[in-house]
């Protein structure tokens, strides 16, 4: 990627909202607007994919397919209300996840059509946490909070399951979990 193109991205990031990019793409605004929209939306779609597919490669596939569908629609001017981009992308994410679960594969053909350079993978960027510090933070939680957090994140029990096992209400489990998460974040130096 050349430096002049990079400068344009930065300028667009400051000056243009998502809806303005949508209008640019719809009016034949070119590859720079598409690349900027991809840069913004890809990481957001990827989070959706990780949440629903629980697999990094599948989330990457989802990101590419949703962006392709979105760019197709924008090029064709099918998104009549640009400020509803998030809603359009969410609907596309849902449909694509359903498609993926049904095993529909048209990725290779579309990659050829749109070009692999535009659709380069966005690497996961989970922040690195201080393991020893977090261990101390977890150990310093109240007993119920620690047990609920470990049952939730390690054993992947639902709130209803935890409630049944501990003989408390599901709402109570949610309160305990929320309190624990806030305390862990505070202990790790993050805002709520």
């Amino acid at each position: 990627m050349g430096s002049s193109l990079h400068i344009k991205y930065v300028v667009m990031d400051i000056e243009l909202k998502d809806a303005e990019l949508v209008l640019q793409i719809g009016s034949g605004g070119g590859r720079e607007a598409e690349a900027e929209l991809f840069r913004r939306m890809a990481s957001r779609i990827r989070l959706y994919g990780l949440r629903h597919l629980r697999d990094e490669q599948a989330a990457e596939d989802l990101t590419q397919q949703v962006m392709i569908t979105t760019l197709e629609a924008l090029r064709a001017g099918r998104l009549r209300e640009p400020e509803r981009l998030a809603s359009f992308v969410l609907g596309t994410c849902r449909m694509t996840v359903l498609d993926m679960r049904r095993g529909a594969q048209r990725k290779e053909r579309l990659l050829e059509q749109f070009g692999a350079d535009l659709l380069a993978p966005v690497q996961p960027s989970l922040p690195q946490l201080d393991h020893e510090q977090l261990t101390r933070c977890v150990q310093n939680l109240k007993e119920r909070e620690r047990t609920v957090v470990v049952m939730t994140f390690y054993d992947e029990q639902t709130g209803a399951d935890v409630a049944r096992l501990l003989g408390v209400s599901e709402a109570n489990v949610r309160v305990i979990r929320h309190r624990a998460i806030h305390q862990l974040r505070e202990c790790m130096g993050a805002a709520a």
Binding site: Q128, L129, H131, L134, F153, Y154, L184, R185
Partner: peptide, 16 residues
């Protein structure tokens, strides 16, 4: 959300 995901992943490691 990424911070929360990292927290969940790290708690999993600590539990193990």
């Amino acid at each position: 959300l990424r911070e929360v995901m990292a927290l969940a992943e790290e708690v999993r490691k600590i539990a193990r």
